[in-house]
Design a protein around this nucleic acid. Structure first.
Lengths: 334, 334
DNA sequence: TTGTACGCGTTATCAA
DNA sequence: TTGATAACGCGTACAA
């Protein structure tokens, strides 16, 4: 049983309030009494009870981090950076794995209402966000969205512009002289983000006055097998693709196996650009040209915005858009 | 500003304690009053303030999860399962990334003292554990270790028997008729775990009366490059290795590239067994024979043991050892 | 069945 | 510079 303010007060022979002031470095404590108090506090390794502190000050210094899943997706870098910034500013992170489950998301958002957390970061996810809106409407404004769009109401948001990333990739292939760019996307998984990528692809074509051909787009799930099959499908259509832009790592893995299996070479026969700086993308041979998302920055920004929101009632809500970049590898040019 | 017990009490015209009893389903409340109370509570969406609850009941229903890092290593499955079980039992998880930093580990362990958490799971990590011992000695017994050994004092621990895993791998190769098994280990990174694997390797040799040759063991860091180099090194020693057991995924990746680059085939020329069911290991061609660790089980067990420890003062401390299994792929036999 | 009163550990206000 | 006191929101032993 840890020592409390009251204990120290008794030992030194002063009032609890005096001890509190001394420990918190607040003015209004005599030099000698202060010294005595700090001495005893140190001796008995006093640690203020955060629960009581929270109750009195109406704050917990804990943030909720809602995320659809940890092992799948490349969120771990985001999570690490959010935790890093939060810890620096004296905040703890409660990990909330929603598994894209509406009930769980609801339950975790309740942490705000239960006064268990001071704010929440909501990462990705694809569920209807009516209950997010409800939560905000109930007066919990300390919410930041990352890679998730809420249309009903203005919530501070960090967005990584997937459409722009796809544009970069497509434009790069176009500039290399390719016109029939096969697009393989995991649209069946991540509807919003993937549709953004398709937008970027189309825009790049349009801006370069290349006719858009629906046959060149394959919407599938994000699996390796799907990537493998995609190649077979695409080489059997009228207009042969001369290059590929693939929007997920496993898809790319499958595609590349399929290309190699067909006896073709990368980039000589088929240049390939992929999306995301994931582990898989980073180890595929040849080293892939890929769209790199500023995940660390997004994570840090999310934490900063949220903490700012908590501490400053005047903080203005806004949507910040981060741009991906293109990392040139050996899969597009020789 | 959320509604409180007091508010409801006023609205219904009863005492706070009555409301408390009604909400918590405790006996001693008239049917009608109870109904009235629950009605109002629902209407105004009453959620008990967990801070106040915690202060009154001396518990937070929050657990600390100390982990050396998220993106590197394959802890995400462990983390997910711990969170899963915890959530089921009504516990929240505070994510504590120690980055193998003594100061941070200390700071996070303080959460116990601050009464911010009811218990802690400590995952891996390689720092001296004097402060863990100190924490326990201060009366915080609700600590569970996972894949980390504390020798000074008995702490409930979940261990995945890496030595046994290595034994399985080595024995399998031996049974296939191989004797000069090259061992490539990331001993420079993860000293304790890797030395366990070396133990298992040696034991398997001994049990099968195969002479142990020090030259066949390479201790390096866990990088892809190291794996690549390892092959070159090993084929240039007196006793040519006839097969490989590699203890980390990136190492294996490098080794396999090196083998293929040399014009050799797997498994025809060199059978390969790897350790861990990681993403990389699961996508390498040919599909690898590998040691699979029961990570989900370890995670669930850790959460269960900890929660049990919290709720039952009689809970006995013990060390549970989980055994890995061998998953036969196509990299060892044709 | 219901209400009173106190405790949990801290902060903050006001008076001394 | 200090201390007494209330307050934060809830749980609970005891009395009514």
């Amino acid at each position: 049983m840890p020592i409390t303010l009251k204990d120290i007060a008794k030992m030194v022979g002063v009032a609890e309030s005096t001890v509190s002031r001394a420990i918190n470095g607040k003015p209004g404590v005599g030099k000698e009494t202060k010294q005595k108090i700090l001495e005893i506090a140190k001796k008995y390794d006093f640690q203020p009870n955060k629960l009581a502190q929270g109750l009195a000050k109406q704050e917990t210094h804990i943030l909720a981090l809602l995320i659809p899943g940890l092992s799948k997706g490349n969120y771990s870098s985001l999570v690490e950076n959010i935790e890093y910034i939060a810890e620096k500013d004296g905040y703890q992170i409660i990990l909330c794995n929603t598994q894209n489950d509406l009930k769980k998301e609801k339950k975790y958002l309740n942490l705000l209402q239960e006064k268990r957390v001071d704010g929440a970061v909501i990462l990705g996810g694809e569920i209807a966000d009516q209950h997010i809106v409800n939560t905000v409407l109930r007066g919990h404004k300390n919410i930041v969205l990352v890679n998730r769009l809420c249309e009903e109401i203005l919530i501070p948001t960090i967005l990584i512009d997937a459409s722009y990333g796809a544009y970069l990739a497509t434009e790069y292939l176009i500039n290399l002289g390719f016109e029939n760019i096969g697009l393989i996307t995991a649209a069946k998984n991540d509807e919003y983000i993937e549709s953004e990528k398709i937008k970027g692809y189309k825009k790049a074509l349009k801006d370069n006055m290349i006719e858009y051909n629906n046959e060149l787009i394959i919407k599938t799930d994000g699996s390796r097998e799907a990537g493998y099959l995609a190649f077979t499908q695409l080489v059997n259509i009228d207009i042969n693709p001369d290059s590929f832009f693939v929007t997920s790592d496993l898809l790319t893995l499958g595609l590349i196996e399929s290309i190699k299996m067909g006896g073709f070479f990368i980039p000589q026969d088929y240049p390939v650009v992929t999306y995301g700086d994931t582990l898989i993308n980073s180890i595929i041979e040849p080293e892939l040209t890929r769209v790199v998302e500023p995940l660390e920055k997004a994570g840090k920004l999310a934490a900063e915005v949220l903490i700012n929101l908590i501490n400053d009632d005047q903080a203005k809500e806004e949507i910040k858009v981060l741009k991906p970049t293109l990392k040139i590898g050996k899969s597009t040019k020789y």
